[in-house]
Write a protein that binds this DNA or RNA. Sequence first.
RNA 1: CGGGGUGUAGCUCAGCCUGGCAGAGCGCUGCGUUUGGGACGCAGAAGCCCUCGGUUCAAAUCCGAGCACCCCGACCA
Length: 576
Amino acid sequence: MRMSKQFGRTLRQAPADAETISHQLLVRGGFIDQLSAGVYSYLPLGLRVKKNIESIIRKEMNTADGIEVLLPTIQPSAIWETSERLFTMQDVLFKLEDKRGRTMVLGPTHEEVITTLFSKFANSYRDLPRTLYQIQTKLRDETRPRGGLVRVREFTMKDAYSFDLDEKGLDVSYSLMVDAYYQIFNTCQIPIVSVEADSGAIGGKGSQEFIFLTDSGEDTVLICDQCDYAANQEKAEFIRPKKTAAQTLNIEKINTPEITTIDQLASFLNIDKNDTAKSVLYMAMPRTGGASFPIFAVIRGDLEINEVKLMNLVDARGITPMTDEELSKYNIISGYASPIEINSEIRVIADISITETVNLVAGANEVDYHFTNTNYLRDWVATDIADIAIADEGHICAKCTGNKAGNLKISRGIEMGHVFRLGKTYTSAFETTVLDQFGEQLTPIMGCYGIGIDRILSAAVEAHHDQDGIIWPRELSPYDIHLTALNFEQDSEVSEEATKLYEDIQVEGLTVLFDDRDENPGVKFKDADLIGIPIRITVSSRNNAENVVELKLRNAETSEKIDKENIIEVLQQLSE
RNA sequence: CGGGGUGUAGCUCAGCCUGGCAGAGCGCUGCGUUUGGGACGCAGAAGCCCUCGGUUCAAAUCCGAGCACCCCGACCA
């Protein structure tokens, strides 16, 4: 590609609203352009990178026995009613009506379509196992797009769906995909950690995420410093710091004027936060619809509620803190809420920490009063006892083996891929069955597997750049070689040599970006660094005089001079 | 959806407080000089000052409403 014919331009300054490095460099380098919040165009350079990522993914998917399909973006809402996700995913669904008033949705993901399709064509156990995948645009009405290409409303995703006869088969399909994922991230040179994850609105049990660790990420993960346990904070399990056991003491009501928070309570009574019980009130929206119901969560004062765990426990599609009206409806005194003698309509959920600790200070459900020495079972009981606490830095790993349990470390990251053992959620909903070898109806078991392609692009830049610009991993680079010609317009020897080299390189099957513009050397070098093609060669009057071409690797400090007759061979070797 | 911020030339921003000709740098066009790390000179083109309404002799500037975009949080297969 001759730069004199290219479309798009590098920018000296990034737009003010680009915050992350990857966003800034991708815009400055002329790879992407924002149209509106969370909606981007790919310019020619960016598109080439995107296509490279797609072909890496295709190769690995095919190796893992995946078969490519292409499913529609526009989908009748009826299939979303069948799966009940028209309701459970209503917040992210783009909806529209056609001229006859039929309602449609723009696909945020494709479980419904793939299951419908699969049902039509698979009739026998001989049709299984199959893993179908596609690379498709997804549309999600995200409330808050952010971070350049990290959270957007229109994006490209590779999604794959496996169908197996039984759990054993799913294990095989699942691990083939996991292996493919490692291979893909490895080729793209994105360092990732695999973490246990919550499966969210998609349903099913068991999932893992592939996380690229970066401070600009929006996911929080906990990683054990002793073993290989790693989990999304939504899911992470940990061992509650133990409180030394003491004799249970008599409950007592004490005056605590204007003390409404755990911090205030601990300092007022001069006790540790883990000597207190914290009560948090929510209204939960049932996953399958219907009226919201109240939940009363109780947790030791040194811990925080994990709302995802809580939501899963009560099978809710969302939970929100109780409003003042709701609190008074259930006779709960804000700041002094107490699990003792609670309104029986309310579902009370206690974190395990509560049952492991004695003599806790809790609210008395009366303004300015708390109880000391409350004890679980003796003074109150919960509807459920469960793990509803959020893991944090320094908590003890729950999965460690051996003598010394490790501590969890907290990091931020971007979710690059997510794989799920879906189970029969969709095949049951769509009544997908095949006949097994005994002539019995059998419901296939599914897995699903996603990778965000735009996110790979961003993560690659986050992971590989310096102050001058991007340093593309070779497999992603928009071109193999950046050919810079200095004094292209003025020195006919340069223009002839460079043009010949441009053609020769292409004959060898390599791709090349040819800077044949009438620009100063400084401009050309700066642009080359910004665009980030890993190999740069320079033809100039000075080099011609020595009969050499200059070679500089983007990630190297210095350049070297290569005899003209050897340059093609050297480039071939570098590109192998 | 809650909190905060910003909308002026393609991009980065000044001007707004204290109302009175629409500005700078970069980029773009032309000419010339230059030519190994975003070089220089001269001459240009380019803005419905986000939108609508109000106040005023006069509004980019003051007031009101709306819209868009960004950030933090909530949400997020």
